[in-house]
């Protein structure tokens, strides 16, 4: 058989395969939902909450119209995230609860663990640390049930953060050590390093804190997670301040403030993290 024959045969098969595309209207609508949700996530990451809410809202409408519960639950959660960023805690809680119910029905335990973690964030933001702890325990159980390492790693990191807020660095260190092998994505690596940085800062190990905050910044920059980047810069500034290097501290505070300002969060960031002790 000549080469020409094989080339022609290959082209014929490829053409026949290409012409064989069947219509998949449901799949197309699901793809549209995904596209809108990704757009919304990009707006959310850039701090443009209005556009993020618009895209999540459209994705929600399409998901509801085609009876796509996973999409509905995801968009309810994402709209809750927008409400939370806007400081509308009641709405956010309502939306996270709706998403949680759906994810439990589907069931999608990884997504349910995220819903529970978000509810914990609301509780923590409201000053109810005990309630936040309960949510995080439930989130950890859901993440373990899902079997998804990333989900588990994410919850472990948040739980460690909660222990840090409870002035319990020992428990935080244990959880962060557990989370280390699970951090396989840049997002999770950024989160893990940030919390390690906070822990080391609390322990007075400034050199290690700087190393972790820089690693966190690099990871968060890779995925352009601006709010996380700002938190990393703030951590660096706090570390330099604790070291007595005020010039450097001022430099990083300015950079953190610039990122917050770009996100529309111009309030002082001191409430964001625990002050260096």
């Amino acid at each position: 058989m000549s080469l020409k024959f094989w080339v022609l045969l290959g082209l014929t098969i490829l053409l026949a395969y290409g012409c064989g595309a069947g219509p998949d209207p449901y799949g197309q609508q699901v793809n549209r939902t995904t596209t809108l949700a990704i757009q919304g996530q990009q707006w959310f990451s850039q701090g443009d909450l209005r556009r993020a809410a618009r895209d999540f809202g459209r994705a929600l409408e399409i998901s509801q119209s085609i009876d796509y519960p996973a999409g509905v639950a995801q968009q309810l959660n994402n709209l809750g995230a927008v409400a939370l960023e806007q400081g509308n805690l009641e709405t956010a809680q309502e939306l996270f609860n709706q998403a949680l119910s759906l994810n439990q029905e589907i069931p999608d335990w990884a997504a349910a663990s995220t819903n529970l973690a978000n509810l914990a964030t609301i509780a923590q933001k409201s000053g109810n640390l005990a309630r936040a702890g309960e949510y995080l325990q439930a989130a950890l159980a859901a993440a373990e049930r899902s079997g998804a390492n990333t989900a588990r790693g994410r919850i472990l990191c948040q739980l460690a953060s909660w222990y840090l807020a409870q002035q319990d660095p020992g428990s935080a260190a244990v959880l962060l050590t557990q989370a280390r092998p699970l951090a396989t994505t840049p997002a999770l690596q950024g989160t893990l390093n940030h919390h390690w940085g906070r822990l080391r800062l609390r322990q007075g190990n400034h050199l290690a804190a700087l190393k972790h905050f820089n690693q966190a910044l690099a990871a968060d920059r890779e995925i352009l997670e601006r709010a996380a980047m700002a938190a990393d810069l703030f951590g660096l500034a706090e570390t330099y301040e604790a070291q007595g290097e005020l010039d450097q501290a001022f430099y990083y505070y300015s950079r953190a403030f610039d990122v917050y300002a770009a996100l529309g969060k111009k309030e002082t960031s001191s409430e964001k993290n625990q002050p260096a002790s």
């Binding site: 995230a81 819903n115 964030t121 989160t191």
Partner: peptide
């Protein structure tokens, strides 16, 4: 390949 959309996780560090 289109990346999958994700359920957003809002960490306390990301909330002002």
């Amino acid at each position: 390949k289109q990346p999958p959309s994700k359920t957003i996780h809002v960490e306390p560090r990301n909330v002002p």
